[in-house]
């Protein structure tokens, strides 16, 4: 099996490991690092459940080879809360009822996080665009959009 050694930062921690070169970032996060908050939903970059933030941008971790993340800074849903304190987006997702089954939520949070990092005051259309690549079957997106709006207003 062809292996490759990668070094990257995940949720602020430096990580080095050898992985088969065919592994995707998603597989390494879930299987090798036990970060199962990132979900697998379609494997073709359509559902967005596997979204993580890589070097400041939202990406599908199912469409990035782990080897391609060498040297990158990765943020997953597990890295959003700091010192036991929820990130404001997370608080608002709770407060606005944005969560139902919750399977799409990690990806939704990461897409919203990347948006806010880049554009601290997005309008409704920009929020919709930012999460258009994250499918949700439960919520109809409305309370998710409200939660992001509430976060950027404060």
């Amino acid at each position: 099996m062809k292996e490759i050694s990668i070094h990257f930062t995940v949720n602020g921690k430096k990580v080095s490991l050898n992985v088969p070169s065919r592994k995707r970032l998603l597989d390494v996060l879930r299987e090798d690092l036990g970060l199962t908050g990132t979900k697998e939903g379609c494997d073709v970059g359509e559902c967005g459940a596997c979204t993580v933030v890589m070097n400041g941008r939202a990406v599908h971790s199912c469409l990035v080879l782990a080897a391609q993340a060498d040297g990158a800074e990765i943020l997953t849903v597990e890295g959003l809360a700091q010192n036991g304190e929820l990130y404001p987006l997370q608080k608002n997702f709770l407060e606005y009822g944005a969560v139902q089954c919750g399977f799409c939520i990690p990806g939704m949070l990461m897409s919203s996080y990347a948006l806010i990092q880049e554009n601290p005051h997005p309008g409704e259309e920009e929020i919709k665009e930012a999460i258009a690549g994250n499918l949700c079957r439960c919520t109809g997106y409305k309370q998710i959009i409200q939660a992001v709006e509430a976060t950027v207003k404060r």
């Binding site: 199962t36 979900k39 697998e40 597990e78 809360a81 929820l86 997702f93 709770l94 969560v99 949070l109």
Partner: peptide, 21 residues
């Protein structure tokens, strides 16, 4: 009244365990 869901915290932090987790 609007009430925050019971299983919300684990779902927004990625701790909730779905079957494949």
């Amino acid at each position: 009244k609007p009430v925050i869901r019971q299983d919300g915290l684990e779902k927004v932090t990625g701790q909730a365990k779905f079957a494949d987790d």
